[in-house]
């Protein structure tokens, strides 16, 4: 999800970027902003990940959009 306004961001294998369709802008594979015209206040949010045995546990959370800090919606 785009931290700008909550649009669905999808990975585009062909271009090797995360693409946000709302403002036609992109994020690098590591989630950082790589578009000089990006309206986003921060890069893509990372999630907490934990490896338990041979399983990967991801703690999914939503974060507030439109602000520079990464604040979870709770």
């Amino acid at each position: 999800m785009c931290p700008h306004a909550g649009c669905f961001v999808d990975y585009q294998a062909a271009r090797g970027v995360f693409f946000c369709p709302c403002h036609d802008s992109t994020f690098a594979v590591d989630g950082s902003i790589n578009d000089p015209h990006s309206p986003s206040p921060r890069g893509l949010d990372t999630l907490e990940v934990e490896v338990k045995g041979d399983e990967v546990w991801v703690r999914f959370r939503n974060y507030r959009t439109g602000i520079q800090e990464k604040v979870p919606v709770s």
Binding site: A5, G6, C7, R64, T65, G66
Partner: peptide
């Protein structure tokens, strides 16, 4: 669904 999701995100700011 997609458009309104953005609208509710904007409410948060």
């Amino acid at each position: 669904y997609g458009a309104t999701k953005v609208a509710t995100s904007l409410a948060g700011i």
